[in-house]
């Protein structure tokens, strides 16, 4: 599973960690996060994320 980076603030979504504080369990692929999820650091939506190479 790929990591994704927020292009606004630089937050990195790591599927191994998920975002448990906001209901995203460890092991959740970025593609499977609900569409209303927002960056926990700056609040932008999934469309502002890109794959981290």
């Amino acid at each position: 599973m790929k990591k994704y980076e927020c292009t606004v603030c630089g937050y990195i979504y790591d599927p191994a960690i998920g975002d448990p504080d906001h209901g995203i369990k460890p092991g959740t692929a970025f593609e499977n996060i609900p569409n209303d999820w927002v960056c926990p650091d700056c609040g932008v939506g999934k469309s502002d994320f890109k794959v981290l190479n």
């Binding site: 603030c9 630089g10 650091d41």
Partner: peptide, 9 residues
């Protein structure tokens, strides 16, 4: 040195 979110992007 970029410092995103300290305190804006």
């Amino acid at each position: 040195m970029l410092m995103p979110m300290v305190h804006w992007p």
